[in-house]
């Protein structure tokens, strides 16, 4: 019966977000246009994942850009293949997706293909995009 606090899904998303990519051999670029930021404060932080095993755990590349009406994140030198992204608007610049005491995110977030989970975050497959040559996708934050 003591007062309680919950941390959030946000941590899962953002811990992974800033992992810096290792060396990449290929020259394909994935350009992500991010819409739906609530303001131009802070940054949009996005994490790129290469497979279901690492999804929302260990990202391949992190990207961060000042938030704007349209924020563009570019992931460079990727090998052709399947990728998925999770991203959030770090409006107050504290490096994490904030949530309230019930664990519900209070900053906006999104996934590639605008995937939305039913009983959990969406699966890698639901958010997966194919990369064959330079590619541009759009993600809406909600």
């Amino acid at each position: 019966m003591s007062p309680i606090r919950f941390s959030s899904l946000g941590r899962v998303v953002c811990i992974a977000a800033m992992t810096v990519a290792g060396a990449a051999a290929q020259a394909d670029d994935l350009t992500v246009e991010v819409l739906g930021a609530r303001s131009d404060k802070g940054t949009v932080d996005g994490a790129l994942y290469a497979d279901a095993a690492s999804w929302l755990k260990n990202s391949l590349q992190g990207e961060r850009q000042p938030a704007n009406a349209k924020t563009v994140l570019v992931y460079r030198n990727l090998q052709p293949g399947t990728y998925a992204l999770s991203l959030f608007h770090d409006e107050n610049g504290n490096g994490k997706l904030d949530s309230n005491i019930a664990g519900i995110p209070t900053e906006r977030y999104g996934f590639s293909r605008d995937a939305r989970g039913h009983m959990a975050a969406p699966s890698f497959a639901d958010a997966a995009v194919e990369l064959h040559g330079d590619t541009t996708i759009t993600i809406h934050l909600r």
């Binding site: 919950f6 899904l9 899962v12 959990a120 975050a121």
Partner: peptide, 12 residues
């Protein structure tokens, strides 16, 4: 755990 809380809260 964290995710479960989030999800429960949403769907309830």
């Amino acid at each position: 755990m964290e995710r479960r809380h989030f999800i429960q809260a949403l769907f309830a």
